[in-house]
Design a protein around this nucleic acid. Structure first.
Lengths: 357, 357
DNA sequence: CTGAAAGCGCTAACAA
DNA sequence: TTGTTAGCGCTTTCAG
């Protein structure tokens, strides 16, 4: 039997069994619409050279059978794409939400398509990025919240330009000319935080951090803390370091709670992140310490939640939206042929209510 | 020239240009390892029938050239998969984080692979799910935080079994036998919340919600609020409804703030979600209302953040981990041939500090 | 144990 | 404007 003749039969037949089993392919649509697969492909991709008639009949069949093309096959068949990959470290980290929104709309505006992948804190973002690059034929990559110690060897599997957003490569050996970055000066932000406390008269300033030398942003901010102490003529007291080996609010709470039991002599805490400060606040409250009357508190980040704490957290805010926009702009420029760049954005102090009593 | 003979030349050649351009394919690896593509495929997929020798040489080349297979092609080539799709509505909704973790490990344990996709609040989860089904050749789907009004027509494009997690189909027309669900009894939870307030002596109970008839969980919980009022002989007062048309903390704050200006007569607020309660608390604080002395507050959800508020939020906690596990169990059973089921899980009251004064 | 070859579903020349 | 056809990179029979 010739394909053409049985079309209506097939049509009826399939109609009855519509969606009853496996998914339709572009071939099915072509057959049912009485055109070739390339024509179907053309209308699906909005190519200009298609007759109204063909377009209509294809669309009708697509509609009727609820056809949805297979993206894998699509991506495979295409020689290139306009995809920009975004890999985000830390599922549901509130800090990234605003940045992602900014990145998304900016990518759209630039005429690219964003394909984002969120990964767990312990997953490997480089591998994820490398896979995305291949699967999605990326033109470029934005890494959100990665590590500070990438090595050239590690990044070898990435062959498209990438920009690090919210972090840089202080502890790695990457060549500045091989990647871009947008971030705040974390060391300086920590310095500013300590300075704010110092100006309020505090001399015994504890620090709540993840690790003092864990190669993460915690280490950079801790370095800023140290530098500030030195500048202000304060001596570093190991007893005033609260190290919790994570960025969790629960761990910050527990860690601070345990530390408070040691009854150290202090009047203020600098937490390296808003989230951790929130954990600390609860511990302080339970220990009967009033914030800011008994203990002043300041952090870095400026996430939305910390604005809803009672008292409102004093913190150095990162310019999240701006960061996202700059990251995209940078990447698009690089894709367009310009060279890599490194941007440092300023933070702004949110006064809040945990600083001054 | 025969391929075999030039291998070492090619190897050297490519070595020099390693990663200098496009990505390697399985063919390149095969050539460099001196085996066929099928052998490479076998070692990459841990098939048993490969000689140690072949395995080693392939792995060596893979290692050396940092080869990463193309997932799209892989998925395409495979006739089936052991993938279970999870589509999550609402990026970085803290409420889902714990559930996702539970789902992930449970899927792993069941011998399946989780492939997750997060979408924005305004995106279409059905379409996302349908595309995943095709691209990833899913065996089943878990929908996290979807809408309550799916229709049969909409779900037509999904041909694998799916389970709705944290919500059900109260406002749609789905056949109970065609899908599964795991959720709490939202109506009852709202009822319980109001009852808790009532038992504390409150008679003028305001409700903070997204919409009273928006077809979302807000509506269900509002219905529970109404039912409770009726049961307790309280009259519904439209003036005590704070409607904000979103689930945002910022909108809840702003909405409550505006509402408070009207100076309504009330002694308690039932917020339909923890997040919204957090916004309300700030508004109350700024209006000089003490919680719980002046105004009692209770919500539903039990997210981590609300435990760190000051005062700690009183709320009806959803059994997040349990929900995730049950969802997977259900789905795996269905994939295994069993029929669809609908599970309702109980909530537990977190006393907190905003209920009793 | 290994290789050749036929797809998977789609895109993109190339002809017609 | 259309259809034919050769890939995209991988998996998987089926022989050997």
């Amino acid at each position: 039997m010739s394909a053409g003749n049985v079309t209506s039969n097939v049509s009826k037949n399939i109609d009855l069994h519509n969606n009853s089993g496996k998914n339709m392919t572009i071939k099915d649509i072509a057959r049912l619409a009485g055109v070739s697969v390339s024509t179907v492909s053309r209308v699906l991709n909005n190519h200009p050279d298609v007759s109204e008639k063909a377009k209509e009949s294809v669309l009708a069949v697509v509609e009727k059978y609820n056809y949805i093309p297979n993206t894998s096959a699509r991506e495979l068949g295409k020689a290139s794409s306009d995809n920009i990959g975004v890999v985000v470290r830390g599922m549901s980290n509130p800090f990234y939400t605003q940045i992602i929104t900014a990145i998304g709309s900016k990518i759209e505006k630039a005429g690219f398509t964003m394909v984002m992948q969120q990964i767990g804190t312990s997953d490997n973002e480089i591998m994820t990025a490398a896979m995305m690059e291949r699967d999605k034929r990326l033109q470029g990559l934005i890494l959100l919240g990665g590590k500070l110690d990438y090595t050239k060897e590690q990044m070898h599997c990435i062959n498209v330009p990438y920009v690090c957003c919210t972090f840089s490569n202080e502890y790695g050996n990457l060549d500045k000319a091989d990647y871009s970055s947008v971030c705040i000066d974390d060391n300086q932000a920590a310095y500013d935080a300590v300075e704010a406390l110092y100006k309020q008269g505090h001399r015994k300033i504890a620090v709540l951090l993840s690790g003092a030398d864990d190669g993460s942003v915690s280490q950079v901010r801790y370095a800023g803390y140290e530098r500030a102490l030195k500048d202000f003529g304060l001596t570093l007291d190991k007893n005033l370091i609260i190290e919790i080996n994570s960025y969790n609010i629960a761990d910050a709470y527990e860690g601070t709670k345990q530390w408070l039991k040691k009854d150290r002599d202090f009047t203020a805490i600098f937490a390296i992140s808003d989230n951790m400060a929130m954990g600390a606040m609860k511990a302080l409250k339970e220990a009967g310490k009033k914030v800011p009357e008994d203990v002043a508190l300041i952090a870095i980040d400026g996430i939305e939640a910390s604005e809803y704490m009672n008292p409102v957290l004093s913190t150095l805010c990162q310019p999240m939206e701006k960061m996202g926009c700059e990251a995209v702009k940078l990447l698009v420029d690089i894709i367009g042929g310009k060279s890599h760049k490194h941007i440092t954005l300023p933070t702004t102090l949110r006064e809040g209510e945990t600083l001054k009593s």
